[in-house]
Each structure stands twice: as structure tokens, then as C-alpha cells.
């Protein structure tokens, strides 16, 4: 366990460093800058703005300044006595270029809770609906119920979440008036977006649970349990489910990542000011610092979630030891 945690921590640092460096360089290679606009700023004014954000520095110095932990502002290393530290390693993601009144830390502090709330609810739906339908389908394998559930799952996987979102709004908001159209101020605002976001995940989970369960239902220990005369429901929920859920659990890591990064379309459709909407918008507006900040947060989140899922895996299947991961 100790080695597992250490190795993962080391891996996290290395991964994030590679991600930051690559993203930093990629942002600078792309044509156009944060201040290129259709109405061009006069050259003298543009120089003033760029100097303010240190865009006039050589790229290696900008990179070191961004990475931190030392503030290279003004006169060289530690020249600024008021703020000797700065950059990512000092926990400062810098000012946003697009939203002039905000720092990246403030933007993430405002938007991340909304994305997490949306994502967690979407995952909750996905797990609840996915396992229920998966178990039902496996238990009634080959019946009409199984067939229709599989059809729904296939639809859920095939339809992009924005199509599902559009349909949900059309039916539940505009036609029936049961749900708000868009926004984020109450719990009710989160129901439709999280359903749309969780639908593809739920469909996958249902498929995985069904397949896993059908496989473990054919195992000897399950046959023994049935032969002992246990009720069918007990056999499924107690004996078969434990092994049958494994594929679904291992999918939850990537699923969580998908829900977090996939939320950008849903956030746009439902006007939820979460981090997902910054994911693409910041790159398009060449908001270097915000794009990097969002990338860092997402890589940390996704990496940790995967580590967590790996850990959960060992709890469900004793054959897998942490040392192997």
C-alpha cells in the first residue's frame, strides 16, 4: 500500500509536469495570441498590454515564471520582496487573459464546484440506472425485457449527450414545464443536465454489468449456491454480483474522466458556468493561463480518480494485489 501510494504520487507529479510543459508549448505554437482581435490595438498599446503580462519575455523565462515557485518579476530571482514566490508550484495559476477582472484561481474556485456537482450527480445516475438495468437484463436474459433494455443501452451509447440534452429540454422543460430550461441556481436545474451527461455512462455500465453478471452466473460457485436452494435474487445480489460488477468498477475511472471533460457541451446547453465550458473556450480565446490551469486541474482529477478506482478494484477482487498496480 505504501509503495502504491508513493508510486502513484510520483506518477502524478511526473504526469502533470509533462502535461503542463506540453500544453504550455502547444499554446505558444498556435497562431494568434490573447490580444489579437479583429479591431487591432495600436502597436504601442499592444506592447503595453503584452509587457504587463510578460509576453515580451523569452519563452523559457515565461515558462519558469509560470512553473514557479520563484517570482521572476522585476529584478531577477527573488527580486520582488513583496511576492518572492509565484507560479504553479506556489499555487498561483496567474491572471486570466480573457477575464481581466479574475485570476485563474478565482475562476476555478467559482466554476469547479459546479462541474463537480454536475459530474457527481451524473455518475450517481449512471451507477444507479446502469447497475439496476444491467442486473435486470442479466437476470431476465433472453426475454423481451432484456431485449428492450439492451436496445435502450445501445441508444444511450449511440446518441451524443447533446442530442439527449435537447430531447430532455424539449419534453420536460418546454412541453411539460416540469423542469427549468437552463441555469444553475437550484437542485432542480441540475437534474436534466446530469441525466443527459450520465446517460451514455449509464448505458455502458448497464452493458458491462449485464455481461459480467452473465459470465459469473455460469461459474461453479453460483451453481453451488443455486443448488443449495438459495432464492434467485440472493444468488444474484450476494454471490454473482460481486464478481460481475468488476468490469463496471474498472470502467468508472475513465467514466468519471469522461463525465468531467464531457461536461463542456452539457454546460453550454444548460448554461451552467462550470469548468467544462472553459476547457475549449480558453484555448480558443488563447487564454494561456486559464487553459493551462484547467488542464492541470483536470489531469490531477483524472489521475487521482484512476488511482482510486484501482484501489477499489483490489477490495472487490482479492486476487489483485496493490503491488501489481
Amino acid at each position: 500500500m505504501k509503495r502504491f501510494v508513493l508510486r502513484r504520487a510520483l506518477g502524478l507529479v511526473l504526469t502533470v509536469w509533462i502535461v503542463v510543459t506540453t500544453a504550455f508549448l502547444m499554446m505558444r505554437v498556435v497562431p494568434g495570441g490573447p490580444f489579437s482581435a479583429e479591431r487591432r490595438l495600436p502597436a504601442a498599446v499592444l506592447a503595453n498590454v503584452e509587457a504587463r503580462y510578460h509576453l515580451d519575455w523569452p519563452i523559457w523565462r515565461q515558462y519558469l515564471q509560470y512553473l514557479g515557485p520563484f517570482n521572476l518579476d522585476s529584478q531577477g530571482l527573488l527580486g520582488d520582496r513583496e511576492r518572492p514566490f509565484g507560479g504553479v508550484l506556489a499555487g498561483d495559476l496567474g491572471p486570466s487573459f480573457r477575464y481581466r477582472d479574475y485570476t485563474v484561481n478565482q475562476i476555478l474556485g467559482e466554476s469547479l464546484p459546479l462541474s463537480l456537482a454536475l459530474g457527481s450527480l451524473a455518475l450517481a445516475w449512471a451507477v444507479a440506472f446502469g447497475t439496476t438495468f444491467g442486473i435486470l437484463a442479466a437476470a431476465r436474459r433472453g426475454t423481451k425485457l432484456d431485449l428492450s433494455l439492451r436496445l435502450v443501452a445501445a441508444l444511450g451509447i449511440a446518441l451524443p449527450s447533446f442530442v439527449i440534452a435537447g430531447l430532455l429540454v424539449l419534453v420536460f422543460s418546454l412541453a411539460l414545464g416540469w423542469s427549468p430550461v437552463a441555469g444553475s441556481s437550484t437542485f432542480a436545474h441540475f437534474i436534466l443536465p446530469s441525466l443527459a451527461l450520465g446517460a451514455p455512462v449509464a448505458a455502458y455500465v448497464a452493458r458491462l454489468v449485464r455481461t459480467g453478471l452473465i459470465e459469473s452466473l455460469s461459474q461453479d460457485y453460483v451453481r453451488t449456491a443455486v443448488a443449495k436452494g438459495l432464492p434467485y435474487s440472493t444468488v444474484i445480489l450476494r454471490h454473482a454480483a460481486r464478481g460481475g460488477l468488476l468490469p463496471a468498477v474498472s470502467y468508472l475511472g475513465p467514466a468519471a474522466a469522461g463525465v468531467l471533460t464531457g461536461s463542456l457541451v452539457i454546460e453550454r446547453i444548460f448554461a451552467i458556468p462550470g469548468t467544462g465550458s472553459h476547457f475549449v473556450a480558453s484555448a480558443l480565446s488563447r487564454d494561456y493561463t486559464l487553459a493551462l490551469g484547467v488542464t492541470i486541474v483536470y489531469s490531477v482529477l483524472i489521475y487521482s480518480l484512476n488511482a482510486l478506482v484501482d484501489f477499489a478494484y483490489t477490495r472487490l477482487d482479492p486476487r489483485i494485489a496493490l503491488e501489481e498496480l
Binding site: P113, L116, S120, S184, L308, F311, T314, R315
Partner: peptide
Amino acid sequence: WASPLWVAALSLVPLALVGWAWSLAL
């Protein structure tokens, strides 16, 4: 290390995170 206590502690982290997110969101 893999005792139930640890499992509980580790799963508490995401739960706390989600709780914090919801309290702010609502």
C-alpha cells in the same frame, strides 16, 4: 494498509469533495 479504516478514509476524500461542491452549488 488496506484495512477497512483506510478504505473508509480514502473514499471520504471524494465524498467530502462532492459535498463541498454541492454546498457551494446550491
